Simulated assay, not measured.
Amino acid sequence: MNLEAAWDVISARSWVCTPVVAVLDTAFNPSHPDLEVNLLSGRNLTPDGLSQDDLRPSPPPSGVVYGQGEPDHGQAVAGLVGATADNGQGIPGVGLNRVKVLPLKVFFWIWNSSTQSYEYSSTSAVLSSAIRYAADRRANVINMSLGSPAPLDVVVQDALGYALSKGSLLVAAAGNDGIDGLRYPARYKGVLAVGSIRLNGTRSDFSSYSSTQTDLVMAAAGNLSPSESLWSLALGTSYPYYSSQARYLTWRGTSFAAPQVSAVAALYVAKYATLYGKAPSPDQIKVCLEQTASNMGAYDSQTGYGIVRADRVLTDTTYCFP
């Protein structure tokens, strides 16, 4: 992604705005020492019995336990956007201290009557309310590192349209099925889908793709065989029903490609607003990221428009700053 060159551009000037990326995800620890300064006050949009400002993992039903790392997912996604840079610990978020994260908890325990079991997931009502909440608070980017193989309810589709009308860029993980066909909401028109590439620049073996041309870009987020992964944050604290002692864990998946692209998009918003006195539209952001990506404006069925090039996004005078 050539982040170092992009960060040189960022460090060389001041900005008139601080862009916000809303992260709709599992759970968050606002006291994590490598994230707290870049984390805004969030909201629990789930009916899990906790207060609206309680971002802890939802208490599981009696007899149900979390899988290892499940609730840490949201903290990892948020970290790739907003982990504190230049503090001598952990990792730097792609936003390099210029981007704030709005954490929105949308995952909780739901009874599935078909499988007769509880699932750690979300609902259309919760997801749509979170999208609208983020849009109403003028989030520049809404990151959804989540997905369904089936189309989402119309209430979610309406919320996506509402967010676009309010100027929020929608970013979603392509999916980890490794097949031709993106998950929802990544597949919807207006949403920027993000797939994963491995270190040699080819598509990660788990990353879903699309032979039908769509808004799809890539970022590096691991591989299954051979094994590749990347570091990000974890909750780093223990709860009565879940223990996450580690502050950092290794991750792989399109869930962790998406926030890298969300943060680059937010940096573009900051520079654009500084130059032109207003934020770019979601369509302008997509054009900038896609046309400057590694495939140079061409679409490939495996990698879409290619790897987002952060250095070009912040300097291109044809598609980004004409």
Rank of each mutant, 00 (worst) to 15 (best):
D8L: 01
V9I: 11
S11G: 12
A12V: 06
V16W: 10
V23Q: 05
L24N: 05
T26K: 04
A27K: 03
A27Y: 10
N29H: 13
S31N: 11
H32L: 14
H32K: 12
N38A: 13
L40C: 10
S41R: 07
S41V: 12
N44E: 12
N44M: 07
P47T: 06
D48R: 01
S51F: 13
D53S: 08
D53V: 12
D54I: 06
L55Y: 11
S58Y: 03
S62I: 09
G67T: 05
P71E: 04
P71F: 15
D72Q: 12
D72G: 04
H73I: 14
G74N: 02
Q75F: 04
A78W: 03
G82P: 10
G82T: 09
A83R: 07
A83Y: 09
T84E: 15
Q89H: 06
V94W: 04
L96N: 07
V99D: 00
V99F: 06
F107D: 08
W111S: 03
T115Y: 15
T115D: 09
Q116R: 11
S117T: 15
Y118C: 04
E119M: 10
S122T: 12
T123Y: 03
S128I: 00
A130Y: 09
Y133D: 13
R138D: 02
R138P: 00
V141G: 10
M144C: 02
A150D: 14
P151R: 02
L152K: 00
V154Q: 15
Y162P: 05
A163I: 10
A163Q: 13
G167V: 06
G175I: 14
G178Q: 12
R187G: 01
Y188S: 05
Y188F: 05
K189N: 14
V191I: 14
A193D: 13
A193M: 15
V194I: 08
G195L: 01
G195S: 06
L199P: 00
L199K: 14
N200K: 07
T202I: 06
S207G: 00
S207Q: 06
Y209L: 07
S211H: 09
S211P: 00
T212V: 08
V217E: 09
A219T: 01
A219W: 09
A219P: 11
G222E: 00
N223I: 01
L224C: 00
S225H: 08
S229T: 01
L235T: 05
G236E: 05
Y239S: 04
R247I: 01
R252N: 08
F256Q: 00
A263N: 12
V264N: 06
V264P: 01
A265F: 08
A266M: 06
V269M: 06
A273T: 13
T274P: 10
T274H: 11
G277K: 11
K278Y: 15
S281P: 09
Q284M: 09
K286V: 05
Q291V: 09
N295Y: 12
Y299Q: 05
S301E: 10
Q302C: 07
Q302G: 10
T315K: 13
D316S: 06
T318E: 14
Y319K: 03
C320N: 08
